[in-house]
């Protein structure tokens, strides 16, 4: 450094100074923008149980299944008989489409990419990488003469 003329040293110092200032300025502008475009995480009220409706709900009887709101998540309730009802997360584990129950084939099916699950939620064919998360189902008696009510709860 001693051999260099002082003006070169000063120039280098000033360039470094300018560069750092420019960099710091850029970071101070880009950081808030980057934070701004990342959506904030909104806490959701946790749902533990959802009442689906009576066990003889026309949709359940006719199509054999019903998609219900479990908080913000879709849950599929499949009715196999008056006492055998099952519930799973309705979001396909492949690419997030909503699955349906195919009565004729007795399978849970995703129409987006032909993903197939059996009636325990296990992925048995097509692209899905994981089984569907199961939900608890129980029937609550509603009094004499009234059909029992289907209630879905977290696993």
């Amino acid at each position: 450094m001693a051999e260099e003329s002082p003006s070169i040293g000063r120039r280098r110092f000033l360039s470094w100074f300018l560069g750092t200032t420019g960099g710091a300025f850029l970071v101070s502008v880009l950081y808030p923008i980057l934070r701004y475009v990342s959506p904030p995480r909104i806490p959701e009220a946790s749902t533990s149980e959802v009442e689906v409706g009576p066990v003889n709900d026309p949709e359940l009887v006719e199509k054999g299944f019903k998609i219900v709101h479990f908080g913000a998540d879709p849950v599929i309730v499949v009715k196999l008989s008056d006492t055998d009802l099952r519930a799973f997360s309705a979001s396909c584990t492949h690419l997030d489409c909503i699955v349906e129950f195919r009565k004729t084939k007795q399978l849970i099916w995703c129409n987006c990419h032909n993903g197939v699950y059996d009636l325990t939620g296990r992925n048995i064919a097509g692209p899905p990488p994981k089984p569907l998360t199961p939900y608890r189902v129980h029937l609550v008696a509603k009094g004499p003469g009234q059909p029992a009510s289907v209630v879905v709860g977290k696993g």
Binding site: I67, V68, P74, V99, E100, N111
Partner: peptide, 10 residues
Amino acid sequence: DPFAPAFQNI
């Protein structure tokens, strides 16, 4: 409808 299954031939 975020709570309807994907329809066939989508």
